[in-house]
Design a protein around this nucleic acid. Structure first.
Lengths: 128, 128
DNA sequence: GTTGTTATTGCAATTAAATCGCATTAGCTT
DNA sequence: AAGCTAATGCGATTTAATTGCAATAACAAC
């Protein structure tokens, strides 16, 4: 299927690229200057994931967060670094660590997500 | 709060202990011999997690899976090994590997889950 | 620039996982 | 056996995400 560039989809992609971490659908929608329909945002994000432009991270709260790919090439589309999810400010950020997870023989890995939940330094000090 | 042992809660706990991996709420409910209400199963599982008897794993599908704790003591309640989630048969199993994930200074870790999605050996060979 | 095809959008309805309020039931203590 | 209250069942509700369908708008071809 041929893809088309719309103002909404480029706005979403720019948002993701400018963000300092992964964004939930809600964050994307609220940060958009122009109002874009809820389902449209979901479809745009799903399209990005499908096209390999964006990674989808499911945090411990069961919600989806989206971050643009870096260092990904078509042959090797991995996202094997851990993510930190602050349960207070909801921010999701990538941790600069590489994981090597081995699966038993015969298994086939499709994707891998690691999520650490807790409090980021800002929220941690604010709590005290 | 004082806990009480009911036939339902012990049945659920026995199921989890006997299972070869983490079970979703749906799996628990369908494997129970006696019919237990949906909300009750959820509440029983949440109670187990709250009491530190069971770990909750959120897979890439956004659903919750539950597995009894092993090697956990009150002072150190961790579940830092990866889980494999077969997207075909829905089975979730623990991978015998220990992860060491470092968070930036000032951060506080509450929990950590790693989920590898893909096909287990059974489903992988069945596909071919 | 105009036209035609069809990907994309907006809207409302829907699905699915998980939670909650409340009256009833049943564990545990005394 | 009695009393307190944790746990249950039921229905309604919340929330994230998806879907069907008609309307709109990208993009290619002319």
């Amino acid at each position: 299927m041929q893809r088309r560039n719309t103002s909404s989809s480029t706005a979403v992609f720019d948002l993701l690229k400018a963000a300092d971490g992964a964004l939930s659908h809600e964050m994307v929608e609220s940060r958009l200057r122009t109002s874009v329909n809820r389902s449209t945002v979901y479809r745009i994000l799903n399209r990005f994931v499908e096209d390999g432009l964006v990674h989808r991270v499911v945090a411990a709260d069961g919600r989806q967060y989206f971050a643009p790919c870096t260092d990904c090439v078509p042959e090797r589309h991995l996202h094997d670094h851990p993510h930190f999810h602050c349960v207070s400010c909801e921010r999701v950020e990538c941790l600069p660590q590489e994981l090597h997870i081995e699966v038993p023989a015969g298994y086939r890995t499709a994707e891998c997500t690691t999520t650490v939940s807790g409090y980021c330094s800002d929220c941690n000090t604010a709590k005290k």
